[in-house]
Amino acid sequence: MTAPLLSIRDLSVSYVVGNGMVHAVDGATFDVPAAGIVGLVGESGCGKSTIARALTRVVPKNARFAGGEIFFDGTDLLKLSEGEMNRLRWGDIAFIPQSAMNSLDPVYRIETQLGEVLRQRGGLSKAEAREKSEALFELVGIEPRRLRDFPHQFSGGMRQRVAIALALALDPKLIIADEPVTALDVIVQRQILDQLQALQQRLGISVILVTHDISVVAYVCDRIVVMYAGQVVESGDTRTVLTAPYHPYTMGLYNAFPDLQSSQGILTPIEGSPPDLSAPPSGCRFAPRCPFVEPECRATEMVLHEVEIVDGPAGHVSACRRNGDAEMLRAKASEVATWSA
């Protein structure tokens, strides 16, 4: 594999709340290759947005970096000065926040808002900014004459495209898109994903797509990173992770998803709920809900191990103690009875 564009090593981020801490991200490690889409998945509260924001270092006031490194093109972002980081933001790393489509200012024309980014951040002249705005609108599939519209004249899907256009404004190498299609209808969702994929391929950039929907990952992502309770539990090539998962949580998540194309009889819930991140359990955090738990699981801290796949793509890691039993666990995981408490 060529050197990744982004390498996250053992990243930990906590939030200060009252007299305690929420350990929102705890020792996350994964890579983002140069050119490609990486899907960051996991259920609500597992730390996806926290990671996404940490990568741009635009975090809430009560957030604390508790350790780790974020190498972007070989530089550790966490060691940069605020000024240096500021130059990278937008320029090299663009972030589309979770509710970006609602964050456009209603009183200004889209043109004004896009132009401002291009001129202030990108140092373009007024004429250049206009030209670039039109090119960006064409890129994301909106007629350039609609630049003169106000945000309320746009549908949710169009506003999401504007957010993507804004992110692309200064030709970044990496776009981090936090749930870019979650609030959208399936048809619009599909249009946006197609657009994002086409742009990624055409411009040769990297995208981190944060989502809770593994169907979305299956559709557009080359690689997948599965998170549970603040930790990365499995990551690798999308096809191998989804078709031959090693971590029981990945297996469970997959079973719980409705699938329009299969004749699956029953969806299987994962009993219980994720742990409280202000006092996470020791050992494997999924252990309390895992049907394959052994006493040692609760005593052994999770560590990502490369799994052995003959002729498979490299870089598939899983944090399960029982990686070696994966084949047997997969067979059991496909039975409903395995998951009923």
Partner: peptide, 22 residues
């Protein structure tokens, strides 16, 4: 609508969306 629904397996081939616009 049916064409647009994503499915959780990566090998699924996808038909192009037959409609445009919102």
């Amino acid at each position: 609508l049916v064409t647009a629904v994503p499915v959780p397996h990566p090998d699924q081939s996808h038909e192009a969306l037959p409609i445009h616009g919102g």
